[in-house]
């Protein structure tokens, strides 16, 4: 019901919650937060992985034991599949994990995340952060920071539980 006119209107389709993944532990935490939040507000969940080999540690898409070059996009798809298999195994309470809308985009992570969020009319961006510190943070910056700067929708940055410090 439209309060001002008092007429019945077609409800607008819910805008998705976009979770950006880099398949790290932090992005798993971000995915779980995003999935819970989307369920809470009854919004569709959409996940995005930006295919980008990290410049400080290249070879992210090299396949262990593979002796020939394979398309990076195919390996990224496999990584996405593995990520969801692991999540489904670790979080059996999550239903229909395999049916979530998945997207892959090639490019620079921060720009692509903002671009996909705009294109898909997302209401929220959820992402993990690797928490780079010191000189490395100053020189290389962080994807999360850039997304926060450029996104036109709210951004939630999730950090995973810190692991037990080693003795």
């Amino acid at each position: 019901m439209d309060k001002e006119t008092g007429t019945l209107t077609e409800p607008a389709p819910a805008r998705p919650v976009l979770v950006a993944l880099d398949f790290s532990t932090d992005s798993e935490a971000a995915f779980l937060w995003g999935a819970k939040h989307a369920a809470l507000i009854s919004a569709p969940l959409m996940v995005l992985h930006v295919i980008h080999d990290p410049v400080e540690n290249p070879g992210f898409y090299n396949k262990e034991g593979e002796s020939t070059l394979l398309p990076i996009e195919d390996i990224a798809e496999e990584k996405m599949q593995d990520f969801f298999l692991n999540v489904a195994k670790a979080q059996p309470q999550l239903k229909n994990v395999q049916l979530i809308d998945r997207k892959l985009a090639i490019g620079l992570p921060a720009g692509r995340i903002v671009e996909v969020a705009n294109n898909e009319n997302a209401q929220l961006i959820v992402m993990g952060t690797r928490g780079r510190t010191g000189l490395s943070n100053l020189l290389l910056g962080s994807v999360a920071k850039k997304v926060l700067q450029h996104a036109s929708v709210p951004v939630v940055v999730v950090k995973s539980e810190p692991s037990e410090p080693e003795d």
Partner: peptide, 13 residues
Amino acid sequence: FISAGLLSMAQSV
């Protein structure tokens, strides 16, 4: 190779 999606720029440096 990069153009054909087999290698990344980061690896090529």
